[in-house]
Simulated scan of single mutants.
Amino acid sequence: MSFATETPVQTHHLPADLTLVTLPYLGDNYTYLLHDPASGATAVIDVGEAAPIEAELAKRGWQLSEIWLTHHHWDHIDGVADLVKSTGALVVGAEVDAHRLPPLARPVVAGDSFEFVGHRVDIIDVPGHTVGHIAYHLPDSAVAFTGDSLMALGCGRLFEGTPDQMYESLSALAKLPPHTQICSGHEYTAANAAFAVTIDPDNAALATRQHQITAKRAEKQPTVPSLLSLELATNPYLRAHLPEVKAAIGMESAPNTEVFAEIRRRKDSF
């Protein structure tokens, strides 16, 4: 499958002197390159196909060191074997999902931490989209790779997990520092915004964000990463506990998890 896309590659400079590259592929997927200029080490997060990653590495003169996987879906892992063959990079992924991930050089579990050339990487268990989904958080660089759990103005469809699981996962991610950049797996933000305004119609911050998203996508610009503070202010799945959101959907006295489940149900049929 061709990796051609109209959305351009973007480069961000993170705290702790790391470089983040947002790389589109497969039309509406994103992968990320995380590069340490001091050591030359580079990690990639999720690999649906190898070719765009190999091309970007060659363009920048970078050598791939590690592959970090968030979950087992084909559009996040199908290029791993080719990329390992061409680069020799070691693969990191959830131990609980090892039976349906490419061979793991470093199996990890919730609560684990490992070092990426001196930068701490924390593993957060985020089931819901799949039961073995994990996220990677680098506290010193204020960045989290959330795959298809927390997304820009949305969250992943519940293919395997329960609403309670996903709500707990999103609640855990919501506790990260507000200045954390959320690197999610897809360019779904415009569609997510169109739905979000039906749930949170009086949210001025959401209205402003929708206008900004429309302008970005008109210029084929990516809408990710996004700041967690912006998600907290506008993402309906992170706002299911708020009285104004409950009132807007007629669930004023319902438990937070039931409100979240109803919002996710409405999105599934939107």
Results as ranks from 00 to 15, higher is better:
1 M>C: 04
8 P>F: 03
10 Q>T: 15
11 T>L: 14
15 P>A: 15
15 P>T: 13
15 P>D: 14
16 A>G: 06
16 A>S: 12
17 D>Q: 15
19 T>I: 11
20 L>I: 08
22 T>N: 13
22 T>C: 13
23 L>Y: 10
25 Y>A: 00
29 N>R: 15
31 T>N: 08
32 Y>I: 09
32 Y>K: 06
33 L>A: 07
34 L>E: 02
37 P>R: 08
38 A>N: 02
38 A>T: 02
41 A>C: 04
41 A>L: 07
45 I>W: 03
45 I>E: 09
47 V>C: 09
54 E>H: 04
55 A>H: 00
56 E>A: 00
56 E>T: 00
58 A>C: 05
62 W>K: 10
63 Q>S: 14
64 L>Q: 08
65 S>A: 11
65 S>Q: 10
65 S>G: 10
68 W>F: 06
71 H>N: 15
73 H>C: 08
75 D>E: 01
76 H>M: 12
78 D>R: 05
80 V>K: 02
80 V>R: 08
82 D>Q: 15
84 V>C: 11
85 K>Q: 12
85 K>T: 07
86 S>R: 14
91 V>S: 09
95 E>P: 01
95 E>N: 12
98 A>C: 07
100 R>T: 04
101 L>R: 13
101 L>M: 12
102 P>A: 09
105 A>N: 13
108 V>W: 05
114 F>H: 14
117 V>K: 12
119 H>G: 07
119 H>V: 12
122 D>A: 11
123 I>R: 03
123 I>L: 06
124 I>A: 05
127 P>S: 11
128 G>N: 09
130 T>G: 08
131 V>T: 15
132 G>H: 11
135 A>W: 01
143 V>Q: 08
146 T>R: 01
150 L>N: 02
159 F>E: 04
160 E>C: 02
162 T>D: 05
166 M>L: 15
169 S>Q: 03
170 L>I: 09
170 L>F: 13
170 L>G: 01
171 S>E: 11
173 L>I: 14
174 A>W: 04
177 P>T: 09
179 H>N: 15
180 T>A: 07
186 H>G: 13
190 A>K: 09
190 A>H: 08
193 A>N: 00
196 A>N: 06
199 I>K: 03
201 P>R: 06
201 P>T: 05
202 D>A: 12
203 N>Y: 12
206 L>M: 08
207 A>F: 02
209 R>L: 15
212 Q>M: 08
217 R>P: 01
219 E>A: 15
221 Q>H: 08
221 Q>V: 06
222 P>V: 06
222 P>R: 07
223 T>M: 01
225 P>C: 04
225 P>S: 03
226 S>C: 14
227 L>P: 00
227 L>G: 02
228 L>G: 06
228 L>T: 05
228 L>K: 02
230 L>E: 13
230 L>P: 00
231 E>I: 02
233 A>F: 00
236 P>I: 09
236 P>H: 06
238 L>P: 02
240 A>I: 00
242 L>N: 05
242 L>G: 04
242 L>K: 11
244 E>T: 14
250 G>Q: 14
252 E>A: 15
253 S>T: 10
256 N>H: 08
257 T>F: 03
258 E>A: 08
258 E>V: 01
263 I>Q: 03
263 I>D: 04
267 K>W: 15
